[in-house]
Amino acid sequence: MIDNRPVCLDGKILNETDAMTTAVQSGLFYGAGCFETMLAENGFIFRFNEHMDRMYAALQYLGLPEELFPDKRKTKQDIDDLVKHCGFDNRRIRVRIQVSLIEKEGYDYDDHVKTMNLITAAPAADQNYPATLFQTKTRVVPDICHPAHLKLSNMLHYRNAFRKAQREGADDALMLTTNGFVAETATANIFWKKGNTVYTPSGLCDILPGILREAVIEIIDRNDSYTIQEGKFYSTALVNADSVWLTNSIIELREVKSINGITYPIDEQFMNYLKEALNKVKELEQQL
């Protein structure tokens, strides 16, 4: 159902039903586009430049000339204007930037390529409660086939896995690589702790290495009381974990209470440490 919310299309704020674009475009036919999702808090977006740099890498992969890349400053201003127009100024807002290519039909290069730039904003969902995960048969796509580190528009494997998990009564789907290693969930990166060691799948596991994931790795790496280990792990490694949690730019940090019926304790002391450390990192960035 369309709620006719305001959106920003190519720099103009319009009602959703008034936001029109051409029907013939490779973004629609082939998913030739990319996106970023980020959390806006009182006008601040954590590591906004990193989000935009990843989008630039995706647009370069898609073959878009650099002069057509969305400008960082203009994009941030468009986000601020949209959030203000919606009356969301002092709330946690989920912002999505979508850039889709408008090209002639077919796979040939188009010397006259254009883009559709769409920004949406909505209150971020409250996901403060611990998550339940269900391991689905849907696997992540190997990086050699689809660059996993980029947020390209065609993410149907994540959508499929997420919906399968929902049908099982879970909040998210645990996904493995094609050769059976733990990768990520349909919406987040995954971490677990055993003793004083924190584990997370490495980039060799065809993951989308999130911006919050990198921030958490940096926090743990700076603490002499813990070690961080990135690698390839079978799902059996999760069975005896002391605690498990997820990260992405919207939820930031979310505890996991069960995976396929196996329950995990919530390590409130460690999670509070991570949350406090992350807030300090965010505060320092705001001061720059």
Results as ranks from 00 to 15, higher is better:
residue 280 K to I: 14
residue 274 L to K: 01
residue 197 T to L: 03
residue 102 I to S: 12
residue 270 F to D: 01
residue 198 V to W: 07
residue 43 G to S: 02
residue 176 L to Y: 09
residue 220 I to P: 09
residue 111 D to R: 13
residue 140 V to F: 04
residue 45 I to N: 05
residue 151 K to S: 06
residue 73 R to A: 14
residue 119 I to H: 05
residue 83 V to A: 01
residue 60 Q to C: 14
residue 26 S to E: 10
residue 118 L to Y: 02
residue 175 M to K: 03
residue 49 N to F: 03
residue 26 S to T: 13
residue 1 M to E: 11
residue 129 Y to S: 12
residue 41 E to V: 13
residue 160 N to V: 14
residue 2 I to Y: 10
residue 187 T to F: 10
residue 38 M to A: 11
residue 25 Q to N: 14
residue 134 F to H: 14
residue 171 D to N: 08
residue 216 V to L: 07
residue 132 T to V: 06
residue 18 D to R: 06
residue 63 G to N: 02
residue 232 K to H: 15
residue 102 I to K: 10
residue 189 N to A: 06
residue 98 Q to N: 14
residue 40 A to V: 14
residue 163 R to N: 14
residue 130 P to Q: 07
residue 211 I to Y: 03
residue 286 Q to N: 08
residue 126 D to L: 08
residue 16 E to P: 02
residue 113 V to Y: 02
residue 273 Y to H: 07
residue 255 E to W: 01
residue 97 I to W: 06
residue 221 D to V: 12
residue 274 L to D: 01
residue 216 V to P: 09
residue 241 A to S: 04
residue 279 N to Y: 15
residue 10 D to W: 04
residue 204 L to S: 11
residue 107 Y to W: 07
residue 262 I to M: 07
residue 3 D to K: 15
residue 68 L to G: 10
residue 197 T to H: 00
residue 215 A to P: 09
residue 180 G to D: 06
residue 286 Q to F: 15
residue 242 D to V: 02
residue 231 G to L: 09
residue 271 M to I: 13
residue 82 L to D: 01
residue 72 K to Y: 12
residue 156 L to Y: 09
residue 82 L to N: 00
residue 238 L to D: 01
residue 236 T to L: 11
residue 17 T to A: 09
residue 220 I to W: 08
residue 265 P to G: 12
residue 244 V to E: 00
residue 264 Y to G: 07
residue 172 D to M: 03
residue 44 F to T: 07
residue 66 E to F: 09
residue 242 D to E: 09
residue 248 N to L: 08
residue 239 V to T: 15
residue 4 N to M: 02
residue 85 H to S: 10
residue 1 M to T: 05
residue 273 Y to N: 02
residue 242 D to L: 02
residue 173 A to R: 05
residue 279 N to H: 14
residue 127 Q to C: 12
